[in-house]
């Protein structure tokens, strides 16, 4: 049984490795996520953020601008996840009152 699990896991890892070597190489400035224009001639998010973050929010740290403004709803979701964790722990561990 254990051997079968390890075999499944190894083949899964092998599959991922085969896929991973077809990804753009590490550090490629022209990979689809890093370049400035995609195949549809539209803007790519990463390059747009680099070029416009300071102009849009007067904030030098691009990550902060993306976190709080461009993708602000992700961060609201993150805050709600934190809140959910707090409520979940309260719900699970607080002794029953009354």
């Amino acid at each position: 049984m254990k051997a079968i699990h390890i075999l499944v896991l190894a083949s899964f890892a092998a599959l991922l490795m085969v896929a991973a070597v077809h990804l753009p190489r590490r550090g490629d400035p022209n990979s689809p996520a890093n370049r400035a224009e995609n195949v549809l001639k539209g803007p790519v998010a990463g390059a747009y953020y680099i070029q416009n973050a300071y102009l849009d929010a007067k904030t030098p740290n691009m990550v902060t601008v993306i976190l709080a403004d461009y993708r602000g709803f992700d961060t609201l979701g993150e805050t709600v996840v934190v809140f959910a964790g707090g409520v979940a722990c309260l719900y699970l561990l607080r002794r029953r009152t009354s």
């Binding site: 102009l55 849009d56 929010a57 007067k58 904030t59 902060t64 709080a68 403004d69 602000g72 961060t75």
Partner: peptide, 12 residues
């Protein structure tokens, strides 16, 4: 732009 700066501070 300044409003965004302030807004980011508030939500942080």
């Amino acid at each position: 732009a300044m409003l965004r700066y302030v807004g980011i501070l508030v939500i942080e």
